[in-house]
Design a protein around this nucleic acid. Sequence first.
DNA 1: GGCTCAGATTGAATCGATTCAATAAGCGTC
DNA 2: GACGCTTATTGAATCGATTCAATCTGAGCC
Lengths: 355, 355
Amino acid sequence: MKRVVRLTDVAQAAGVSKGTASNVFNRPEVVRPEVRTRVQEAARRLGYGGPDPRGRLLRAGKVNAIGIVIADQLSYFFCDPFARLLMSGIAEVCDQHGAGISLVSGASGEQAAWSIETALVDGFIVHCLEQGDRLIEHTRRRNLPFVSIDLDAGAGTSSVLIDDRQGAYLAARHLLELGHRSLAIMSLELRSDGRFGWADPERLGSSTCRVERDRMAGYAAALAEHGLDIERIPVMEAPNDLIRAAPHADQLLAGPDEITGVLCMSDVLALAVIEAARRRERRVPDDLSVVGFDDIPEAAAATPPLTTIAQPIADKGRRAAALIFEEAEPRSEVLPVRFVERGSTARPPAGAART
Amino acid sequence: MKRVVRLTDVAQAAGVSKGTASNVFNRPEVVRPEVRTRVQEAARRLGYGGPDPRGRLLRAGKVNAIGIVIADQLSYFFCDPFARLLMSGIAEVCDQHGAGISLVSGASGEQAAWSIETALVDGFIVHCLEQGDRLIEHTRRRNLPFVSIDLDAGAGTSSVLIDDRQGAYLAARHLLELGHRSLAIMSLELRSDGRFGWADPERLGSSTCRVERDRMAGYAAALAEHGLDIERIPVMEAPNDLIRAAPHADQLLAGPDEITGVLCMSDVLALAVIEAARRRERRVPDDLSVVGFDDIPEAAAATPPLTTIAQPIADKGRRAAALIFEEAEPRSEVLPVRFVERGSTARPPAGAART
DNA sequence: GGCTCAGATTGAATCGATTCAATAAGCGTC
DNA sequence: GACGCTTATTGAATCGATTCAATCTGAGCC
């Protein structure tokens, strides 16, 4: 394989200096037309691919792209509805600024650190529920502007958040006001250890993830108002993915107590529960009420349409990207949540109601 | 703003040479523990963010990311169902190779060339229907491995394709065999000039886009077998987007002739037609048959579920990415298409059938 | 012809790292 | 104490471009 053509080679072939050759490509107007064509001629003859961005980059400094870090595989970006909406918000703002997007996966531990350290970007947006602190730490080391989404990055860094506690509170209050007393919680991963299934109270308390902790606290507050103790409520932890959540949803509904309402920490989990209910021939909402969280587009289109807590997902992305480009002082933005009542919740079946 | 800390600064502060400092970060095992900690100490004190990838890159050569070029805005990646599937296939293979993904938009002319020229990637995958040649040309100049999807890039470059002609042929034959004779075509953009609406035969012939041309040829072949001339068939050109296609779908159905079947060049267009039919109170498939193309997940979930031509979209992405990483001789791969009959097609209404 | 001045071209310095041949240091042996 | 051997460290070369002060060129004018 013959060596690749460099700017120097072109300059030499055209009989001009490197500086002039560089100008031909970057400020063609300053070089005499005949010289310009001579250089272009030489470039074509040698098959020169234009100034190598690697060299240029070093001098110019700016990459003109921002990196999005997630804790999952890259394919997650395009499969998960939440991630897609978030990304389209980010992409919108990047389009406006003519910046590119680099996707960085923090999936495998070792790899993650390296991916973040070597990502060629001008700034980072970090989004992840699990593993957040680890990735944030790596990202912070890069000394680049960065914004975290749904992650409390501590002082000195920007973040875009919602009031998860309030959202969860509204969801739980809704079911309680309908008269439900036999509730269960379908939870996202509480600790980043890949263990799913029934979660005991000890595990609830020790959750390392802010989002899950706050939502749990919101549920707890609403329950307490109705004299219920969250530690007495069955909590099932499941991966946020329709397929992998299915067995856990089944297990939840197969539990000993007859549950009349399920509080789900995401719409995807809620849809999994509805699916599981269908398999067990329990009708939603007549036999079982389900509340989601997020309000992804699939929520409104589901049968029955999902009662859920709406959060402005695309806005989250837009705001995060905007914060990167603003280069303003680090600050946190909290976006509003909203309760959306649709068809997946109703009063509990007459027989099951108890005070 | 104080200047950023460089490796040199750290080396100096720790009283070692630049070479040793570099080793501390890249091959820590070769430097004596006490020196190592001394350097790490200095790095921490100065707030050094680790070796700057820009410098490293120049020396090392490899970026460890591939670029995906599209003709649309970046947000298209996350909105269009086809693009999403394609990307998840690409992402899967990238995950396996531990490579990142950079999204490159070729949306605005000027910008496009620059984005491609300056993208920091080891290779390109180009996907676009319109504007293909222009983008391919820019990409080829980079002298990097590249693969085009759905685009005939000519000899010397790899591409992943499907047999568009055959797919379209199968779609048209299906409607014709059901007895439809009053057909219309809902077409993707035939020329990259942003003009939509009724397309005259002259425009059909001069299409600059391979995919559209081949599909049109497939339709024409099936029509010819039943003695019909494609030039006599109304063709409506529309943007491939549920919302922007709506007015064109309306216009198509409002046409003078009573149409009983619509051949759509994509599922998105087909869904737009079904929507338009619903608005005009024409029942699908009883009053109107609709055939799509692509078989996106939404096709099976639609009401009625869409009869369409299935193509292996995620596989296209997987194969394209694989070709990049293989670094094999350029070659073209043609993936299979398959006719999928669902609920959006039926015999034409009795009154409308004519021979 | 000599002088001025604007515009074109040059060439050295720079960006921030990695690499590797050469050197230095440390250690055991005879 | 000299010799070889291993291991650690150094320093210069390199990657591929951009930038800018200095130099060169040539036209216009007196």
